[in-house]
Simulated assay, not measured.
Amino acid sequence: MDSQGVHDYLLTKPLSSVAQPFGPGVDVYKVKDKMFATLALGKMGKEDEDNRHWRVNLKCDPDEAQALRDIFTAVIPGYHMNKKLWNTVILDGSIPAGEIQRMIDNSYTLVVSNMPKKEREQILSLL
């Protein structure tokens, strides 16, 4: 799944929106003003410009976050995020699209589940 596919899928979530509050280059996806993902082109370590990959930060259950890191080398602790609750998924083509969509769904659902009951029920009724 490439960055455009991730962007498009993130915006299919009910009441989702995208903005760049951290400046150009980092898209922040929210549901009712609560962040559930970020998407940015990044590099880490000594990568050169040719080895840059898009990265998506997704909220995650702490146990699942660690399990995903153990399974996929392209899943690392959340960059600039709470590393217990967020993962960074490097979009290098090594993770199947369906798995990335599942991670996005889980991130969205985790954020919605922490909203007040009225908002949560409204959003869940749209799923």
Rank of each mutant, 00 (worst) to 15 (best):
G45M: 05
K30Y: 07
G78P: 04
G25N: 01
L68Q: 01
D48C: 11
W86M: 05
K59V: 09
K32C: 15
K117L: 14
P14R: 02
N51R: 15
D63T: 03
N82V: 01
V75F: 00
F72I: 12
A74W: 00
S107A: 09
N57Y: 02
S94M: 07
L110Q: 05
R52L: 15
L127C: 13
Q101K: 12
I71V: 15
P21W: 09
L11H: 01
E47N: 14
K118V: 14
G23W: 07
H7R: 13
F72E: 04
I123P: 02
G42R: 02
E121D: 10
V89I: 12
M81D: 01
K43P: 03
R120A: 13
K83F: 06
V111K: 00
T73R: 02
V111L: 08
K118N: 11
Q20V: 10
L85F: 11
S16M: 09
N51V: 14
D8A: 07
N114P: 12
G5I: 10
E47C: 14
L58W: 03
M103K: 01
V111H: 01
V89K: 01
A97F: 07
V112F: 03
D50H: 15
N51S: 15
T12E: 05
V28R: 08
K34M: 12
V28P: 06
P24D: 14
G93T: 07
Y29W: 05
E47W: 12
S94L: 06
R69A: 00
D105A: 05
L127D: 11
R69S: 02
I76T: 08
N51L: 14
A67K: 10
I123M: 01
I100R: 02
K34P: 08
L85W: 08
Q66R: 12
A65G: 09
V56N: 03
K83Q: 05
D27N: 14
H7V: 13
F36Y: 04
K32R: 15
K117Y: 11
P21S: 10
I95G: 04
M81H: 02
D27P: 06
G25F: 07
I100N: 00
K59A: 04
L58G: 06
V112I: 04
Q122N: 13
V111N: 01
D61P: 03
E121C: 10
N106D: 11
